[in-house]
Write a protein that binds this DNA or RNA. Structure first.
Lengths: 230, 230
DNA sequence: AATCGTATTATGGCGTACCAGATACTGTAG
DNA sequence: CTACAGTATCTGGTACGCCATAATACGATT
């Protein structure tokens, strides 16, 4: 049997280790608010809730810690990381720089496939907004940026953006619910696509920056309006 | 006792857990080449070498995995991550974008303190080159960028850059050994400082981009010259 | 009654032992 | 000399136990 083909019939295994499953569960639980920022994450409780051993739980906590989703208080143990407004702004800023970079690269490549793929994602976002399916808005937005990065083979930058994005996920879900966002969001994204279509690197860069800047502004408003009420 | 002062007399403790110590050890061992890319990291061997239990070793390996220093082959276990040239280029590119951003912010702030701090680091680099102390070159370079980011309160971006940098550390130690680098490197960095001094945001951005672009080019040359000989 | 010391509890940090499943290695029988 | 079975190796995962520390509750002493 010669190399290239032997993968074709390879039996697909679950392949996910228990640890990875647990990791996803806990991350999701944090991201979608089941665990609130500041909540303590007691190892033995998590063992019970997840139905896995402490070893696995601890590895998961370590992993989330290095993702910035969990903070570890010395002698007190892990808690869900608090997101302060300053940090959130920085994350948006970084995303702007990287997404702008990717957008510029897409524009410079002048490939119709990229434009097509982006427009498909964009259509998905519009549909999700129309259907009021906010969770779908998030995943489609994610896929929009995913294509933006991967079409120009920037998987590392995409990884970084992803890593940062989970930390502000609850902010994201709040910003997209803002009234004007349902109109302005897709509009700004279509400006990115337009610039890419005309091969306007600088324009694409600016449009991408503008989009996250807008998101950042909304997030800041939301966050500063909420913290005092805490 | 009123809040702001109570930290002043706080007694500080060692606070480092065994896990953190082990993490640093292993990371350093990978970064400075004691473990080579592709080497298997057998858990029980590490236990013996580090003198700690498997629990700790496993958590450390998970952590390094999420840092990208260690890769995990399913059912075969962890190995030291291989750095392919494509990934290295992407990392340099991201650093360029972020360091350029930070440099621009520094320039726009027009603060003499920033310039002073940067020049001090730069002097340190020059001295280290003069003394042929390559390890000191690396730490001083690191401190140069550290000030670049932290002086404008961009600690998140600094974290990202740091995370990425460890992955290309052996490349860094090769690029700085290049003949011309000892002259051109500091020269390019002084251009960044100059632009910041004149408050030229765009110039600082470009200078920072140029610097990493040069590093990237050298790294690519080094890497592609070495891989075939492998 | 206020304060101080002590016991208890909760929890993380760490270690050990064990088992199951996958893989790599090896020696032997045909 | 090959095929196959057995074995060693290693990770993935689990269970359990011990110790240190922090917080809290409680009780004693002045």
């Amino acid at each position: 049997m010669s190399g290239a083909l032997k993968d074709a019939i390879r039996v697909e295994r679950p392949a996910k280790t228990l640890r990875e499953l647990a990791l996803d569960k806990v991350r999701e639980a944090i991201v979608n608010g089941y665990f609130r920022p500041g909540d303590r994450l007691v190892e033995r409780d998590l063992c019970a809730q997840l139905g896995v051993s402490r070893t696995v739980v601890r590895e998961v906590l370590r992993h989330l810690e290095s993702e910035g989703l969990v903070a570890n208080l010395p002698n007190k143990g892990p808690i869900v990381a608090q997101l302060d407004i300053e940090e959130a702004k920085q994350i948006y800023e970084i995303r702007g720089a990287l997404e702008g970079m990717a957008a510029r690269l897409c524009a410079e490549r002048r490939s119709p496939e990229i434009v097509a793929a982006l427009e498909e994602s964009l259509a998905g976002i519009r549909n999700s907004y129309r259907d009021n399916d906010m969770s779908a808005v998030l995943t489609n937005t994610s896929s929009f940026y995913h294509t933006l990065f991967t079409m120009v083979d920037r998987n590392v930058a995409w990884g970084v953006v992803n890593l940062l994005t989970v930390r502000i996920n609850h902010l994201r879900s709040m910003t997209i619910k803002t009234e004007r966002r349902s109109i302005e969001g897709p509009l700004q994204m279509s400006k990115i696509v337009d610039a890419i279509r005309r091969g306007d690197g600088e324009g694409a860069y600016q449009a991408a920056m503008d989009h996250v800047a807008a998101a950042s502004a909304i997030a800041e408003a939301v966050l500063s309006a909420k913290k005092p009420a805490d």
